[in-house]
């Protein structure tokens, strides 16, 4: 069965491309959200396995949203993403209870699998 993902980014262009890219690699994109508040509502409604979460959201930091998602039940896996791709953002993401971090430009289904399986 396809793995389910919710894409959270305020940039509609990125959401559309990420959807295409992940769909081509066998992911099922169950929803999209444009900010942190919407992300929390949609995650509770859709129960995706994974939330792909932008670091800079119009209503605050993705790091805070990641923490709040981790506290929901059942908690989805959260992978943070950003146009920044500093290595340190991995640690920063993990410190805030996200599973990991993928730079937007390197986004792919395979890369997400790698982060989720801790590679």
């Amino acid at each position: 069965m396809d793995r389910t993902v919710l894409i959270v980014d305020d940039h509609a262009g990125f959401r559309a491309l990420a959807r295409k890219l992940l769909a081509a690699e066998g992911w099922e994109v169950v929803g999209e959200a444009g900010d942190g508040a919407e992300a929390l509502t949609e995650a509770r409604r859709l129960h995706p396995e994974l939330v792909l979460l932008d670091l800079n959201l119009p209503d605050g930091s993705g790091l805070d949203v990641a923490e709040r998602l981790a506290a929901t039940d059942p908690a989805p896996q959260v992978v943070l993403t950003s146009t920044h791709d500093e290595d340190e953002l991995h640690e920063l993401a993990r410190a805030r209870r996200a599973t990991g971090f993928v730079p937007q430009r390197l986004l792919s289904g395979a890369r997400l699998e790698a982060v989720l399986s801790g590679r």
């Binding site: 262009g13 990125f14 491309l17 890219l21 937007q104 430009r105 390197l106 986004l107 792919s108």
Partner: peptide, 11 residues
């Protein structure tokens, strides 16, 4: 923009 371009090229 470069990020978008990378994603488009990879698709």
């Amino acid at each position: 923009r470069l990020v978008m371009l990378a994603l488009q090229l990879r698709i």
